[in-house]
Nucleic acid binder design. Sequence first.
DNA 1: CTCAAGGTGTACCAAAAATTTCATATAAGA
DNA 2: TCTTATATGAAATTTTTGGTACACCTTGAG
Lengths: 295, 295
Amino acid sequence: MKHSIMKKTKAVSPVDPPSLAERIRLEMDSFTPSEKRAAHLLLSHYPFAGLDTVAEFATRAGISAPSALRFVTRLGFSGFPDFQRHLRGELEAQLLSPLAKAGPADKSQSAPALASFAEAVIGNLRATVENIAPAEFDAVVALLSDPRRHIHFTGGRFTGALARYAESHFRIVRSQVDFIEGQPALWRDRMIEIGKKDVIVAFDIRRYQEDVTALCEAAAKQGATIVLLTDPWLSPIARVARHVLPAHIVAPSNWDSSAGLLLITEALVAAVTKHLWDTAKPRMEAVERLRNEKP
Amino acid sequence: MKHSIMKKTKAVSPVDPPSLAERIRLEMDSFTPSEKRAAHLLLSHYPFAGLDTVAEFATRAGISAPSALRFVTRLGFSGFPDFQRHLRGELEAQLLSPLAKAGPADKSQSAPALASFAEAVIGNLRATVENIAPAEFDAVVALLSDPRRHIHFTGGRFTGALARYAESHFRIVRSQVDFIEGQPALWRDRMIEIGKKDVIVAFDIRRYQEDVTALCEAAAKQGATIVLLTDPWLSPIARVARHVLPAHIVAPSNWDSSAGLLLITEALVAAVTKHLWDTAKPRMEAVERLRNEKP
DNA sequence: CTCAAGGTGTACCAAAAATTTCATATAAGA
DNA sequence: TCTTATATGAAATTTTTGGTACACCTTGAG
């Protein structure tokens, strides 16, 4: 009972944790006079008043150090440092949740390349989310969560890396996952294996690559389901795709930004992992175990 | 007299920005290696990392207590307690100004998976930008723009894809670019070629991979310059890295998000492309031409 | 008015933290 | 290559802090 409060160092429960302040308010009338003084000080400058030394805290509360000690002990802490740790923990959790904070104004001037680039990318992400129908997203999640399906990832010269990134995650979450190189010579023969049970997840943005298009068209002809991650102008693959998830890609650069594609990818990974958690968890544990037994 | 503590730290200027964090970012390149580590730790968990004891702070930063002391002294504080007082002061001012902001009423529940995931990622990007010293970023840009250097990209099982992504862009912008596979068997022999003229750009986030670390250590020993893209907890590679660019990676998922790493990567690509434009442009045109003449 | 029974503060001690010292390692300069 | 300057950490030292024992109040019941 006593120290049940402190275990919560990182529990990150969805509901706001019962702040210490709240508890103090509740128990206020059961406190001794000195304790009340301490409580009032703490509540009036919560939680900063408690971050000083005991001596400081006691003085400001108008009591003696031992009384301050007794106060925190009574709250269930094992000592003053323990009490402070808790306060800091609360503070950190509170400050981190609305981390949008983002310093105001001024820095834009000195804003180096990185900052302005980031703002553009953030704009892309927002626009990307806006333009994707939740239903479409959910449908893709359901598709990729179907254990009977075989999932193939592929992409172009730049986006191929994203396809790899996706594959390396899905490979752990579920079985029947692989990566197909874009060059026709490398997939021509595998195409015979592709059928209705297969899903192709293709990444393709402008300067659309003919070989990736060819791959998807061939697969579609065999009855495979195509999921396309592309830009707002839509890769020609869209013609044969069942699901299309477009991402905004324009950035203050000579190159396009793939951040939106990565966002969708990671969101899909997260959603599918959650969806398949019962089977994914053991798989992930098994992978961990295999990695750790280093010969 | 009693309450003097609360007000002492704030220089009640109407504009509050001279945050310590900002100053640290500015002076970053004038720091010694140990000081940089301390600075990175502090910035990545600002300001909470500094609220512990010196010993704790030093350990987490991977340096000794005296070095931590020297760091805060260098920042102009008379000692560690003084430094902590300042941090608390900033924190209090910051938390009190937009009072009652953080409405605990969160709509995250009703928001679709993609949207809430995007918000978290955007938060990560902002935090990432905040915590990278412009000077550090610029230094890396200069390094990667040096045509006499040979650039090698590498990464772990997930981040390897990002390294590939980086490589596929830089390869077009400049010469002397390649990708090194993480497994020791694949790079052992190449290591003889690595020397002072080489730059290793390593991607490594938690569940840090031993083989990537080994690669970097070996390369560093040969005199190569290491650039590290990692998370705020810093991969062990940081010990041998000349430049460290940390990205926030925590997302509402069972997996970490690499969006911050991608952001940095793309910003680097953009900056280097611009920097080398005179030589990059002809290269890019040549690549286009070669691609188009499809036999 | 006396006498418990908590409540509180003073004085002291032990523990922990901050800081200084100094030898060693590392990088810069000649 | 040899020096010199600088950076760094282990260990010793000093200072501060948290914690405790105990005596002194205060209060309320008999």
